[in-house]
Structure formats: C-alpha cells, structure tokens
C-alpha cells in the first residue's frame, strides 16, 4: 500500500496541485483581461469604462460572471443537444490544456516534453472544432455561416503559423519550449531574442494569431453586422460564458506562445542587476500583458477585413512569404555554418 502511495498517488496529487496552481491564476487573469480590455478601449475612445462595481470598477468581471451564471441555459429545439453543449466545453478545455507545456520561469513547467512546440500547434489547430461544432449543432443559419467562415479562416492561418514556428525551430534547434527560451539567452539581452533576427516572422506570427483567435480585425466568425453574433448566436448563460472564457484564455495563450518563441520567455531584457532581481515569471507576465495590449489596441483601431481580403492575405501574402523565409533562414544557417547542434 505504501508503495502504491509513493509511486502513483503522491505524484498524482502533486500534479493536480500544479494544475490548480496554473488554472486558478489563469482564470483570474482571463476575468481581469476583460476588464483590461474595456478600460483600455474606454481610454482610447475618451470614455471612462466600467467604474461602478467596486473601486475603479475592479469587481466588474465578478459581477459579469455572476450575471451569466444565473441566466437560463437555452437549448434550441432543433439543436443537436449533446454537441450543442459539448462545443463550448471543447473550446474552454482546449484553451486550458495547452498551458501544460508553457514554461513560466526556469523549470516552472508542468510537463517539460520534448515536442512542446508540436503539442501547442496541435492544440491550437483543434480550436476550430469548438466553433464549427457549435455552428452546426445550433441548427441555425447565422451560427452555421459563422462556423464555416471560422473553419476556413483558422485552417488558412495555421499554415503560416506552422512555417513561422519552423523558422524559430531552425534557429533554436529544439522542439522543447524551455530549450527555445534558453537559446535566446546571451550577453546582448533584449537583442538576443528571436524577434530581432526574425522580425518579419514575428509580425506575421502576431497577425496570424489575431486571425487564429478570431480577434479584430479578423473577427469575421462573429461579425455582428452580418451574422448577428456568428457561432455564438444561439448560446446563453454559462455555455456562452465558456466560449467567452475560452476566447480570452486563447488570447493569453497565444501571447504566451509568442513570448516564448520570440520575446525570450522569462528572460530579463538586459543583464543588469536591477532587472535580474525581478523574478522570471514577472517578466513573462509583463511581456504577455504588452502583447495583450496590442491585441486590444488593434481592436480599438482597425476596421474589420472583408472575407476575400482575409483569404488573400493568408494564402497569397503570408504563405509564400513565410515559406520563402524558411528557405532563406535554412540557407543562411547552413551557409554560415550556424546550424545549432
């Protein structure tokens, strides 16, 4: 019995504890990201934003959550009930399980697997299922159109994301996320991070993750002027809230991936004492917050793309360019004998 405890039960309990340590702060971050978004957009549009619930509106996310929790869950009569309720769960779960491989600090990672990047790519490519199943199971026109748009959009932009990841892998020489962050360590600090030598790919990656998370200016799956609310039209209450949480958790996740691949993960921007005193997880958080600010900034600034323009950008601009850049990077590394061992 003691053996059973040592080999199975104790490690299992430790892993459950670690999962809670990741998921609870993450959900809190998601709740406050909604407030962050509303506050930042309010300032950009010369408004005040939520300021009634709690000091400076700080309790607004909790009030929103409580409101959604007490609403009635409406399942349309013509809907496929199982799939209709499964879709938001899939979206939400997929946005959480990807965090298992993200390194928050040196050694602060739940599963330090050798194919971490592939795992993230696989999980992000599954995100489309939540939306497409929601659209189909609703058995309604607008959600179906939204789901079809979203499926085409996410598949298109995944291709260029894949090529961007390949260039980073070529430079880093490993599929392990901790290894990728370690490969950006150097005397130059900030200038050693991959966004400097691979700057065009950094831009392509950021624009692609905007499309991948269905955010502005690529939020065609839920374009309210054309499709009411896209795939979410028939959803209410907690089912809607799960979609909402999933979308925002995905934003944080994609910013985290971008940070790990291009912005040096937990590394401080310079090797000065004042920077190295700050723990790595704070740096990681700051970088994610900056990227999230850009997400919101883009939303407040840019008009929505038209659908054919979106497809053109994905297939005719990003795909050839990123493919070319993979070849150029590989050729450069081989010619100058800089291929990482």
């Amino acid at each position: 019995m003691a053996e059973f405890w040592d080999i199975y039960l104790l490690p299992a309990l430790i892993i459950v504890g670690q999962i809670l340590l990741i998921v609870l702060p993450l959900l809190l971050a998601v709740a406050y990201l909604t407030l962050y978004e509303r506050k930042v957009m309010a300032v950009m549009q010369l408004r005040k934003g939520p300021n009634v619930v709690g000091p400076f509106g700080l309790l607004q996310p909790l009030a929103d959550g409580a409101k959604l929790f007490f609403k009635e869950t409406v399942v349309p009569t013509g809907a496929n009930k199982v799939l209709f309720l499964l879709a938001p769960m899939v979206t939400f779960i997929l946005s959480l399980i990807a965090w298992a491989v993200i390194p928050f600090d040196e050694g602060w990672v739940l599963a330090d697997i050798n194919v971490g990047v592939l795992y993230l790519f696989a999980i992000s490519s599954l995100g489309v299922y939540g939306i497409i199943v929601a659209g189909w199971a609703s058995n309604s026109r607008y959600p179906f159109l939204g789901a079809l748009r979203s499926a085409a959009q996410m598949v298109s932009y995944e291709v260029s994301i894949g090529f961007v990841i390949v260039t980073v892998l070529l430079c880093a020489g490993t599929l392990n996320l901790t290894g990728i962050v370690e490969s950006q360590k150097g005397d130059l600090g900030l200038l050693n991070w991959w966004f400097v030598p691979l700057f065009p790919m950094f831009i392509i990656f950021f624009v692609s993750i905007l499309a991948e998370t269905n955010r502005h200016p690529f939020d065609l799956p839920e374009a309210e002027a054309e499709l009411v609310a896209g795939y979410q039209t028939e959803y209410s209450s907690m089912a809607f809230a799960l979609f909402f949480l999933g979308e925002y958790a995905n934003m944080i996740l994609m910013s985290g991936i971008c940070t790990v691949l291009f912005l040096g993960g937990w590394l401080p921007p310079a090797d000065w004492a004042i920077f190295t005193w700050i723990p790595g997880i704070i740096w990681f958080g700051i970088k994610i917050a900056v990227l999230l600010f850009v997400f919101i900034w883009v939303r407040a600034t840019l008009p929505r793309y038209r659908y054919d323009q979106l497809m053109r950008l994905g297939w005719k601009v990003f795909l050839p360019f990123s493919l070319l850049w993979v070849v150029v990077t590989a050729g450069f590394l081989v010619y100058f004998d800089m291929v990482p061992a």
């Binding site: 194919v115 592939l118 790519f121 696989a122 490519s125 599954l126």
Partner: peptide
C-alpha cells in the same frame, strides 16, 4: 513515439478531419 503522436493530431485531426467535417456539413 511522441513525435508521431503529435503529427497524427496536427495532420489528421487539425487539417484532414476539419476538411471532412466541412464537406460533410455542407
């Protein structure tokens, strides 16, 4: 064989099955 496992999900679930679903739904 974790590499093959991940590639299986990326290629078949992430791309091929999405297109299947896309066609079958239409």
């Amino acid at each position: 064989a974790e590499f093959i496992a991940m590639i299986l999900i990326v290629v078949y679930v992430g791309a091929v099955a999405v297109l299947f679903l896309f066609v079958v739904m239409m």
